[in-house]
């Protein structure tokens, strides 16, 4: 499979101004601080981490909704980092976003028809085609055509998320970045929406970047998973391998912290102490060392790079994991 998206050393820093008249900058929130990964055509990459780890910012920077501070984004082999104006607008056809909050992401004054056809209007699709497309989209996301003239407030959370999904598919995108698409939904509805997203991926050959904090959901839907901590990827690999043999202490702690709905399952829980440090003042060295149960002197001074930790291509950024040669 060909590589659809390649991100190299992507950084997004938000400047902190001192509030004075001259807006002197005295620091930066390093929301995303040098992440690199690839996404292949048709696969789902899960991006997980706790709140504040930079996963949403990463998603937005890839879509160029935020201007990246540094780094390179290649989409279908082309460097899109410097795209502006008309070029960028055209690019947006192929990259879409599904939002977390189905209440805030739909315009309450527009009907469902207006909401879903808006992107098609922007790209000048003829009216006849728009109508046909709308019916088809409503059908694939499981809504009826009599819903067309209704307003968002007439729908439940799950239905709204379906509307958001239909809108994101209106222009036949290649890449859809899903930012916590199911975390606002009840479990029974969540399962419906996840199933829908999987069906649509098959049908339209979509590539997903699935941003979520729920590790069970990410496990279910992803082919590969990247774990983020304070703006960096600490571990990335095939989903089964990463979940069964997590190499980075943070991934291990994260996985052991998920409560599983099975009282018979006894696991050893690794409790990590404390809270996430502030991204405006991240710790020196390995960013996880303040909470890591295994931290030693070297972790306080030098920041580990991602290295191969299994023959299957799993990578982790920790001083204490062994490097393994990649199998070919």
């Amino acid at each position: 499979m060909s590589t659809l998206l390649e991100v190299k050393n992507l950084k997004k820093h938000f400047p902190i101004n001192n509030g004075g008249l001259l807006k002197k900058q005295n620091g930066a929130v390093k929301a995303v601080d040098g992440i690199s990964f690839q996404v292949k055509q048709g696969e789902t990459l899960g991006l997980v981490g706790e709140s504040g780890c930079g996963k949403s910012t990463a998603g937005r920077a890839i879509l160029k909704l935020l201007e990246p501070t540094e780094g390179e984004i290649r989409f279908k082999g082309e460097d899109i980092t410097g795209y502006r104006g008309e070029k960028l607008r055209k690019l947006r056809r192929d990259m879409q976003l599904i939002f977390q909050d189905p209440y805030a992401s739909l315009n309450p004054r527009k009907t469902i028809e207006q909401i879903i056809t808006e992107p098609m209007k922007i790209f000048n699709l003829p009216k006849q085609q728009r109508k046909k497309k709308l019916d088809r989209l409503l059908d694939v996301v499981g809504l009826s055509s009599y819903h067309k003239q209704r307003y968002p407030h007439e729908f439940s959370g799950g239905q709204r998320q379906r509307i958001g999904i239909a809108r994101s598919l209106a222009l036949d995108p290649d890449l859809v970045i899903c930012d916590e698409p199911v975390s606002a939904l009840d479990v029974s509805i969540q399962a419906q929406v996840i199933n829908l997203m999987e069906d649509l991926q098959q049908e339209f050959n979509l590539t997903y970047i699935f941003i979520a904090h729920d590790l069970s959901v990410v496990h279910h839907i992803s082919d590969r998973v990247a774990v983020m901590y304070l703006g960096q990827i600490v571990e990335i690999g095939e989903v089964e391998e990463l979940y069964s043999h997590p190499k980075h202490p943070y991934t291990q702690a994260l996985l052991s912290a998920i409560p599983e709905a099975d009282p018979e399952l006894s696991r050893e829980r690794i409790l990590i102490k404390g809270d996430l440090p502030s991204p405006s003042d991240p710790p020196l060295g390995c960013k996880f060392h303040t909470r890591c149960p295994y931290a030693e002197e070297i972790c306080r001074t030098s920041n580990p790079l991602l290295k191969q930790v299994s023959s299957g291509g799993q990578q982790a950024a920790c001083h204490f994991v062994k490097e393994v040669a990649l199998e070919h």
């Binding site: 479990v187 419906q192 590790l215 069970s216 959901v217 279910h220 996985l255 998920i258 599983e260 709905a261």
Partner: peptide
């Protein structure tokens, strides 16, 4: 039963989640 089947489990990955149809 429906609730239990609709949550993805890490210990046992399924092809498809068994969602409860419809709305509350």
């Amino acid at each position: 039963l429906g609730l239990m089947n609709s949550i993805p489990k890490i210990s046992a990955k399924k092809e498809k989640l068994e969602a409860i149809e419809g709305l509350p």
